[in-house]
C-alpha cells in the first residue's frame, strides 16, 4: 500500500507540473537528453541574436554603400559632361566645386558608424575612423584588412564587414613612362576636380576612366553585400526550422502525455483501493470474532 501511495504521489506531481520528469533522478538518461536539447536550443537562440547584430551592421553598410553609389553615379555623370569640349572653363570650375562637395559626402559616408558606434569600414579597428584627412587634405585609410567572421550556425559563418580600402578602392594609374602606381579613392576624385579647374583635357578623361573604375568597385562591394544579406535571410529561415525541430524533440522528451498519465493514475488509484479493501476484509478474519 505504501508503494502504491508513493506511485500515486509521483503521478500527481507529474500531472501538476506537466513534465514527464519531476526531478532529474526520475530518469537520468532522459534528463541528459533534455539537457542536450536545451543546450542546442539555446545555442540556436544565440546564433539568432548574432544574426540580428550582424544584420544591423550590414544594414549600416548597405545604407552607406547605396548612398555612395548614387553619389558616384552623379560624379560619373559630371565626368561624362566635363569630357564635352563645348564646356567653358567656368562651367568646369562649377563642376569641380560640385565634385569636391560630393567627395566630402563620400568621405563622410566612408566613416559611417553602425548603431553601436562601430566604424563600418574600418576593418577590425572599429573604434576609430576608417579614413582620416591630413592637414593637406590627403585622405588615408586607417583601418586594417581584417574580415570579421561571425558564426551564424554550427556550420555556417558570415563575414560582417568589408575593409574600407576594398569598398573605397584605390585605382591603378599608369603614367606616361608606363609605370603603374596605386592612387587612393579620394585622391583620384581630387585629381579629377583639380583637372577640371586646370582644364586639362587629358587628365579629365583619365578622371572619367578612374571614376568609372571606382564606381565598378563600388558595384562589386554592393553585390558582395547583397550576397551576405541573402545569407542572413536564408540563415534566419534555417535557424527557425532548426529551432522548431529542437522544440519538438524537447517537447517529446519533456512534456507529459496527459491521456496516458491520467489513465495510469486511475489504474494506480484502483489498485490502492483494492489493497485497502482487502486489508480491511482480511483483518476482520479472526477466530476471536466467532468465540462467544
Amino acid at each position: 500500500m505504501n508503494r502504491q501511495q508513493s506511485k500515486i504521489a509521483e503521478m500527481q506531481a507529474k500531472l501538476a507540473s506537466g513534465n514527464q520528469l519531476v526531478k532529474p533522478s526520475d530518469d537520468a538518461e532522459k534528463s541528459g537528453i533534455i539537457q542536450r536539447l536545451t543546450s542546442a536550443l539555446s545555442r540556436q537562440d544565440s546564433f539568432e541574436a548574432g544574426l540580428d547584430r550582424a544584420q544591423s551592421r550590414l544594414l549600416a553598410e548597405q545604407s552607406a554603400l547605396m548612398s555612395s553609389e548614387n553619389i558616384l553615379q552623379r560624379i560619373r555623370e559630371l565626368a561624362v559632361r566635363a569630357g564635352n569640349d563645348s564646356l567653358s572653363v567656368a562651367d568646369k570650375t562649377v563642376i569641380a566645386g560640385e565634385v569636391s562637395s560630393l567627395r566630402d559626402e563620400l568621405f563622410a559616408l566612408a566613416n559611417s558608424q553602425d548603431v553601436n558606434g562601430n566604424y563600418v569600414f574600418a576593418g577590425s579597428a572599429v573604434q576609430s575612423a576608417a579614413f582620416v584627412a591630413a592637414a593637406d587634405g590627403t585622405i588615408t585609410y586607417q583601418g586594417d584588412k581584417n574580415l570579421s567572421l561571425v558564426d551564424v550556425s554550427d556550420y555556417r559563418t558570415l563575414v560582417i564587414n568589408r575593409p574600407g580600402d576594398e569598398v573605397f578602392k584605390p585605382v591603378a594609374r599608369t603614367d606616361g613612362a608606363g609605370d603603374t602606381t596605386s592612387i587612393g579613392f579620394f585622391a583620384a576624385i581630387d585629381d579629377f576636380a583639380d583637372a577640371l579647374i586646370a582644364d586639362n583635357d587629358v587628365d579629365i578623361s583619365r578622371g572619367l576612366t578612374e571614376v568609372s573604375s571606382i564606381t565598378e568597385s563600388m558595384g562589386i562591394a554592393i553585390a558582395d553585400l547583397g550576397n551576405r544579406m541573402n545569407t542572413v535571410d536564408s540563415q534566419r529561415d534555417v535557424l527557425a526550422d532548426t529551432k522548431l525541430r529542437y522544440q519538438e524533440l524537447l517537447s517529446n522528451a519533456e512534456d507529459l502525455d496527459y491521456a496516458t498519465a491520467v489513465t495510469q493514475l486511475s489504474a494506480e488509484l484502483l489498485s490502492l483501493e483494492a489493497a485497502q479493501a482487502s486489508f480491511a476484509k482480511i483483518s476482520q478474519l479472526n477466530l476471536f470474532n466467532y468465540l462467544r
Binding site: S39, R43, D45, S46, A49, G50, R57, N116, V126, S148
Partner: peptide, 18 residues
Amino acid sequence: SALDTFFNSARDLSSDPG
C-alpha cells in the same frame, strides 16, 4: 545551463567585439 550561457555570451561578443 552555465556553460551554455557562458558560450552564448562569447558568441554574442564575437558578433560585436567592440
